[in-house]
């Protein structure tokens, strides 16, 4: 196993640990993307992120991968800190495998964390918007119920 693979493995494991005990095993093992959407999303996008962090940081690949991860964690009962903490898990994973985190990588991880936080906020805002939309629609029903035109 190459060092990069080892790092990825540890990063995924760390992220899985943020889920309840009973869940982590299933999330980690079931490989079918449709039976296990959460595990699949984690695995696939963490892989992409690591490749980019080690590589060229292509925004066209980083942004969707980060979005998929954060979008999911934004609705999973995590506090904001817990929701984006997985980014820092990489630092630990790198440290465990290679004994030190190169400065350049550390900087990129910090940057990624900030991006994740932005993304988290925009997801939460979107959730509130969606709620507001549904409430507006309900208000229309209510108005209609009173006998007004829609």
């Amino acid at each position: 196993m190459s060092a990069e693979q080892a790092i990825l493995q540890r990063w995924i494991e760390r992220t899985l640990k943020s889920y309840p005990d009973g869940m982590a095993g299933f999330l980690g093992e079931e490989r079918d993307p449709f039976r296990n959407p959460v595990g699949h999303t984690l695995r696939e996008n963490l892989t992409t992120l690591l490749q980019e962090l080690m590589g060229t940081m292509d925004q066209k690949r980083v942004a969707p991968a980060l979005d998929a991860l954060v979008r999911m964690r934004a609705v999973q009962n995590f506090s904001p800190a817990e929701a984006v903490r997985f980014v820092f898990g990489l630092r630990q994973a790198v440290f465990e495998v290679s004994g030190a985190v190169p400065d350049s990588l550390a900087t990129r991880i910090d940057e990624l964390a900030l991006m994740a936080f932005d993304q988290y906020m925009s997801c939460r805002e979107q959730i509130f918007e969606l709620r507001a939309k549904e409430i507006r629609r309900r208000a229309q029903y209510a108005a209609f119920e009173e006998g007004e035109e829609p």
Binding site: D21, G22, M23, A24, G25, F26
Partner: peptide
């Protein structure tokens, strides 16, 4: 024993 969900 091993499957945490079943153990739960």
């Amino acid at each position: 024993f091993r499957d945490p969900a079943v153990r739960y």
